[in-house]
Design a protein around this nucleic acid. Structure first.
Lengths: 337, 337
DNA sequence: CTGAAAGCGCTTACAG
DNA sequence: CTGAAAGCGCTTACAG
């Protein structure tokens, strides 16, 4: 009988080898991502493995899992993304595991040992090399990049950042603002760049010039929001509105306004980006561009599972819409301006 | 070579057989609980298995994991707790999996199939029955109960809620407040009850009577903070300070004060509980009782792993200290009061 | 790149 | 109750 609890009729390496017209060792190599198998042969074997729904004998007891890799858990976005992933995974009886990639270079070895059906990397956490190693093990990788850095050839999920920047800025323009500042993110983050470009596009379309001194950038933190907010309000001709690249920056600007004795929104309108939960609890409630993080997590999970099942998804890049959420931090500019 | 990734020096059935002075098939029977082995032989084999720390080959490939069960991921506490758990788990090369128990009664079956080394249940998520099933599978359970409901006989980690309530209230009394309101949590949550008792103890010790109309309770939500805050401020003799059972309630009180045209802290001092990240980003920055959630997660993980290793922990209930974090939402009461 | 041969760890069926 | 023998599923080392 079988070595372990292999059940009646389950596919073995020998069966797969016979059906694929190769030997058992070749199947073994494909299974373990070892080199020395012709691409064509590998494909044929992989197809049979899928068709026969081959499982390793030890995989029978191990519940299938989906792995989510975060760069660091400090992210305020993490919990909402996890919620979306957990929802899709739960519906399919799938466990969810997670890893911090910042914990060291060994994270991938651990993930590989766990043999997840797929890996979702948040924040461009997984780079080219990781992708290659996962691919070698037949584990699909999906990038979820709320802060950008899409890696080509890796399926990914993101948000409509450019549109969000455009919509937020149009909203301020429609309220009558002309002196609009933007606090952007680090230049390396493509998503931040897209939001900035959306801002510029709206300003250009309205024929409103962008003053260099009203354009700032830094890390996406409360502290930088406070710093830039203070500097902007200290200008001889301060802005009447600020569009911030994320909600944390916006809260920093709130504090800068408070310290400078300016009221939000009467003296200064503020728009954020993300719509984290605390945005609606801030005082005043923050008008912001909602990034549907839970939906993004769910979409990434769906995409990952489609790939894990060996199916070809309709598209390899999914971009979800952003929405402007109107709350109480924006109004028309003071008449004096 | 080895069938799978068995590493050099790892104990095999053959080694155990030799050391126990029996044959491999006998060891196999012991491992799988099959009949037909003399009690004495079985014991000898089991001792060697333990001494040699024998692992099945598939247990080697399956990375050991620690499971965290949340009632729901909506919790703002979740991410900080996870961070603490992940830190301890990461240091020991352990994977972390997580489940939402609110997703349905089947969550335990899934967890059992995954065979975690231990389960940490947050929020009293795991009840008596779950505990019994886990115990039957030899999987230790640790309860992490920031909102209370400790289940006796289940090892648990919590925070010094009573002390936190006492310290927060003393702080307000020392500032000169006498008309101090408290917005408590649901009566079922023992942690909320402990905070309320700490409040009462401080008031009693100071000889300050607690007015019934200044004592409120509800869900631990922004909305209830707003509602109770509005009602309190509408009293003919409103309080000069409010101690809130969590940070969300405090933010609701902020909004109520804003709407009533009262300033925090000049007209109304506010103290929260939890010290979630956004507490320091709120306007004004919130004075609150810090619950060390990451440390609680870490302590729960340590406790769980100690139990998983078969060791007896020094104590089965760990209570971590709370700290009053002074920020900008409290000051002396207005002179008129 | 491929597979026949050897071998590993474990289990089963069965003889004693 | 015990273990020699056979066998299973998989992997490795190596010859072609």
């Amino acid at each position: 009988m079988a070595r372990r609890g292999r059940r009646r009729g389950e596919t073995t390496v020998a069966t797969v080898a016979r059906l694929a017209g190769v030997s058992a060792p070749t199947v073994s190599k494909v299974l373990n991502g070892h080199p020395g198998v012709a691409a064509e042969t590998r494909e044929r074997v992989e197809r049979v493995l899928r068709e026969q729904d081959y499982r390793r004998p030890d995989a029978v007891t191990q519940a299938p899992m989906l792995e989510v890799a975060f760069q660091a858990l400090e992210s305020h976005l993490a919990i909402e993304i996890m919620r979306g992933v957990a929802q899709v995974a739960g519906a399919r009886q799938l466990a969810v595991g997670f890893t911090e990639t910042a914990s060291g270079p060994g994270w991938l070895d651990q993930v590989l040992r766990r043999r997840p059906v797929a890996v979702i990397a948040v924040y461009g956490a997984a780079m080219r090399r990781e992708h290659a190693r996962l691919a070698a093990s037949g584990i699909p990788l999906v990038a979820l990049d709320p802060t950008g850095e899409p890696v080509h050839s890796v399926p990914s999920v993101g948000a409509a950042n450019w549109n969000g920047g455009l919509t937020a800025t149009r909203h301020l323009l429609e309220l009558g603002h002309r002196r609009i500042a933007m606090i952007g993110g680090p230049p390396g983050f493509l998503a931040a760049r897209a939001r900035l470009d959306g801002f510029r596009a709206a300003m250009d379309a309205a024929g409103v010039p962008v003053e260099a001194q009203l354009l700032r950038s830094g890390t996406l933190s409360y502290e930088d929001g406070l710093r830039h907010g203070r500097d902007l309000l200290a200008l001889s001709a301060p802005p009447t509105a600020v569009f911030c690249c994320n909600d944390l920056l916006a809260l920093g600007v709130y504090e800068a306004a408070r310290r400078a004795g300016r009221r939000v929104p009467e003296d200064l309108s503020v728009v954020g980006f993300d719509d984290l939960e605390f945005a609606r609890w801030s005082g005043p409630a923050l008008t912001t561009v909602r990034q549907p993080l839970a939906e993004m997590g769910a979409a990434a999970a769906e995409l990952a599972l489609t790939l894990a099942a060996g199916d070809t998804p309709p598209r390899l890049r999914i971009e979800l819409a952003t929405d402007l959420i109107l709350r109480s931090s924006t109004t028309s500019p003071p008449v004096a301006a």
